[in-house]
Design a binder for these strands. Sequence first.
DNA 1: TGGTAACTGAAAGTGATTTTCACTTGGGTC
DNA 2: GACCCAAGTGAAAATCACTTTCAGTTACCA
Lengths: 149, 149
Amino acid sequence: MIFTWVAIVLQAWEGKLRGLGYRVTAPRRAVLRALARAHRPLSVAELHKRGRAQYACLGLVTVYRTLQMLERVGLARRIHAGGACRSFVASTPGHSHTITCEHCEKTAEFDGDDVCLLPAGLEERTGYRVSGHWLQLVGVCRSCRASGD
Amino acid sequence: MIFTWVAIVLQAWEGKLRGLGYRVTAPRRAVLRALARAHRPLSVAELHKRGRAQYACLGLVTVYRTLQMLERVGLARRIHAGGACRSFVASTPGHSHTITCEHCEKTAEFDGDDVCLLPAGLEERTGYRVSGHWLQLVGVCRSCRASGD
DNA sequence: TGGTAACTGAAAGTGATTTTCACTTGGGTC
DNA sequence: GACCCAAGTGAAAATCACTTTCAGTTACCA
Ligand SMILES: [Mn+2]
Ligand SMILES: [Mn+2]
Ligand SMILES: [Zn+2]
Ligand SMILES: [Zn+2]
């Protein structure tokens, strides 16, 4: 039996959900798999379509509910693009950020914190004590650079 | 005649719009004023309500259209909060960021660039060349700190 | 003081998301 | 393996967040 990367990730996710008291159901598996296979942020409608390839009667409402749950436990992350936050990528729990290719939308996650590295004197200048941040990067991925932008 | 800060800002904004070829109309003034007086991000519906205090028959559609225009010229900025990007604050044109108080939502703008200050080696680690970023900070403002969080 | 393109609000249209509810099912219990 | 039942599900309807259309109004320039 051959395990793909996606299969391994799905195993881990299902274990995590079970550990948190969530049931692992066929509809949820279909959403999880669609999310794990994607290389770019997908809208709810896209995830619904892809999820149906695995589980034909998957309901759109279930996709919404599953994404909400995955976001809550840190396995999915909402991506801001085009003035809205309507697409999702797989994610690892904990603090991290994403960078999305402006050509192909391929999205990667990275950590290693950063905004401790803010403008010196920001707290003095603004009067705010910084307690958190939200950051998303845009860039050009390696393969898009190779193929001439 | 006494000029408030809001009145001065509005003068400047109206001049800027005129300079760009936009007409300065009563509905637009009402939206501008609602935005200039706010200390926190406001939803379109909130701006509509506040705008009506000044111009009673202000249409919701005009609020949408005015915000779109203000965003285009850099005088308004969409704020990401609570999984959506549906509220707006006044803004100055050019690259800058905001910090929002987690208690009272009061929002300030700051510049001085930052994300040149990203994790060292990010481009090598991820393979992406960074070309842009979206950053919003959360914190506690001075007055909320003073009044015991 | 017109003339007119820009602008406006109401109403209708659209797409995204949430709510409701009767039915199904995962996973623990015996 | 059969049973139980709270958790989960999908269809339909309701709600929300815009966007489009269109007939009228108005800012601003000649
Ligand atoms: Mn960070
Ligand atoms: Mn910046
Ligand atoms: Zn790319
Ligand atoms: Zn505050």
